[in-house]
Each structure stands twice: as C-alpha cells, then as structure tokens.
Amino acid sequence: MAKNLPLQEITAVQSVILEDDKDLLLILDQTLLPNEKKYLELRKAEDVWDAIYHLKVRGAPAIGIAAAYGIYIEAKKSGTEEYEEFCKDFKKIKNYLASSRPTAVNLFWALDRMEQVIFKHKESSIELIIKALKQEADNIKQEDEKVCESIGEYVLTLLKPEWGLLTHCNAGTIATARYGTALAPIYIGNSRGYNFKVYADETRPLLQGARLTAWELQEAGIDVTLICDNMASIVMKEGKIQAVLVGCDRVAANGDAANKIGTSGVAILAKHYNIPFYVCAPTSTIDMNTKNGDDIKIEQRAGEEITEKWYEKPMAPKSVKVYNPCFDVTDNKLITAIITEKGILYPPFDKSLTELYSNK
C-alpha cells in the first residue's frame, strides 16, 4: 500500500458526525468493522445509550463526543421555555447517558461540560442555551482533534524511524475526533517517512486490535502485523519491539492507568524486556479525584462475548462460568511516561500530575 500519505488523508475517517439540520448523529458502527463500513443514525437518547453500551461507538474521546452531541439533540426537542423544567429534563438525560459505560472518564467529563453551559446561561432564553450547547459539543470535538495531534507530536520525540511498536486495543482515529492517541505518533511519523513497523495485539475478548487497529492502520498504509495477545512476549524477546504505545480510559492521581483488559500484562512484559511503556492520555482522561487504580470501577461484560460472540457455534461448555472484566489497571511503576497534550510526564506521577494541574 502507499506510504508517506498526507496526514489528513491518513486520518480521514470520522467516527462521530452531527447532521444538525436533520436532528441526528451519525456514528461509524465499529461492531461491523472490518467487514462493513456503515454509519448509524442516532435520533434519541436511547439510540446514543445503546451505541455507547454496545460499543458501536467506542474509545474514550469518541464516547465523550457522542454523548455531548447526543444530549444536544435531545435538548433541541425541549418544548418548554421554563429554565427549571429544562434543567430537570436535561439532568435526567445526562444521568441516563452516564449510565452507559462506567470506566471511561471522558463520558462524564463531556456531560459535565454540557451541563455547565446551562448553568452559565441561566439568564438566557432556552433557544440561546440550546445554541450554546451546540457550540460546546463542537468545541469538545475540535479540541480533541488538537489534543490528539499534540499528543502525537510529543510521543514522536520519544521514537526513532524504523522502530517496531506494539499497541493494544484501539486508540486510533475511530476512537477519537481525529489522529487517535496511541496511534497519533504512528500516523504523524508515517507521513514524515518514519516507516514504523506496528504489531497490534488482537485484544480479547472484543478483538478491537484485530478488527479495528489492524483495519485502520492497513487502510492508512502503515506496516502492521496482527498478533494474538499471548504472542506479545515472543515478539519482545525476538527484538521486534522498541516501544509500547497504549491509550487509556482513566488515569488516577497516582498515575495508575485503566485501559482495555490485557494492557497490564503487556506492561509487565515490557518491564521484563526493558522496553519503554508509554501511556497516551488526554488530560480529559486524568481523574485527580480518583486516588489510585483500586478506586477505578471496572466494567464487567457478558460472558457470551468470550464463549460465542465471534464463532459460528459456541466454543465453550454450555453454562460455564465466565469472568469478563472489560478493563484492567496498569500499576504506575510499570509506566515509563504518560504523554498528554500538555507534555510528557515522568515518575513519580503523583508529583508530575499534581504539577500539571497546578500549572493549568
């Protein structure tokens, strides 16, 4: 496939698109990839909730963007001119959307930002409040694009051309507004001739690495090799990997980072083989109110995702007990650096994170 494509061409796919004149939100259905590229029309809060819960839209930033636009679309339907009644209805929808996924902090962050718009415009008409909500949702999406590009530039300073990079889950363009987080430096570097060789874990049980990361990297002309999760150790031992890049859904105040299940194991392997392990984290994923990883709520999902979801016939004994946590937490001691849009943070993370927020 073509190499050194223009950056905008590499990252052209959008996962969340507002069609304001039609009162609907288009989202790329990530459950159908890589076999079918289809956009779903979301017209009400129930549609948005379903899309987030069932991973039709996924990736912490993309979830936040979808929630922001989703609650705006619902606000447009309000038939009241009374501020208190409008607030009551808004709060109900906000809480409903917030119940869709418990781990990714961007969901709550985006919904809180939308709610603050209402409080700031208390003296305005409902019509003006709705316009302000649209602007805030646009801001969230536009800011995320800039954030991801900035993260990519910072991470790129840590990498060298021709390096082999391992990534887990999907932290790319379709998980964000554009560029991705962990994949941003790969896209930016590729456009400048770095020619990275990427190894993508399949990422069980939902196969985001196989279905999504491998798909979007291949579409962009990146040299990508798909491996099973239990092959990470051997490619590291063989010297194929010079750095590990992962995204995250929540970073605690001490630097513990929650990401797709299996990330912690990759970090342990990287530590053993003395390979740098980089967490790419927009500041919107950093939760200074969460003391450490033990305080992060880990989403539990249906066992069918493991036993039968990807098979023509069930591949496990009927009624077998299944433990299916969607995320794990990587201990801060395993993380070489946390890269945000504000810069590169190094251990001790409780200190560097505190300094980051004291300088904001």
Rank of each mutant, 00 (worst) to 15 (best):
I306Y: 11
K3Q: 14
K297N: 10
A104V: 08
A66Y: 00
I234D: 11
A184H: 04
R178L: 05
E308N: 15
D23W: 03
L7H: 03
A232L: 07
L226Y: 06
M315V: 14
G79V: 02
I188M: 11
D89I: 03
V224N: 05
V329I: 15
Y311T: 13
A66N: 01
K297S: 13
A316D: 13
I174P: 00
Q30E: 04
E312L: 14
A2G: 06
I344M: 06
D50A: 13
W310N: 15
Q116L: 14
G265L: 12
A62S: 01
K360N: 11
A258S: 13
C248L: 07
S264L: 06
Y199R: 09
K88T: 11
G239E: 09
K360P: 03
I52V: 14
A243T: 03
D350T: 06
K38G: 01
I188H: 07
Q142H: 14
L42N: 00
N170H: 07
K291L: 11
Y187G: 05
T203E: 04
V279I: 15
Y96I: 03
E355A: 14
T167L: 04
Q300A: 10
T80S: 14
I186Y: 02
A45D: 10
A270K: 03
Q300V: 11
T167K: 07
A66P: 02
E81F: 06
V224H: 10
I140L: 12
Y69G: 01
T203S: 15
T173P: 01
I140Q: 09
D294A: 13
Y194K: 11
S100K: 00
V224Q: 01
Y199M: 04
A270P: 07
D112P: 06
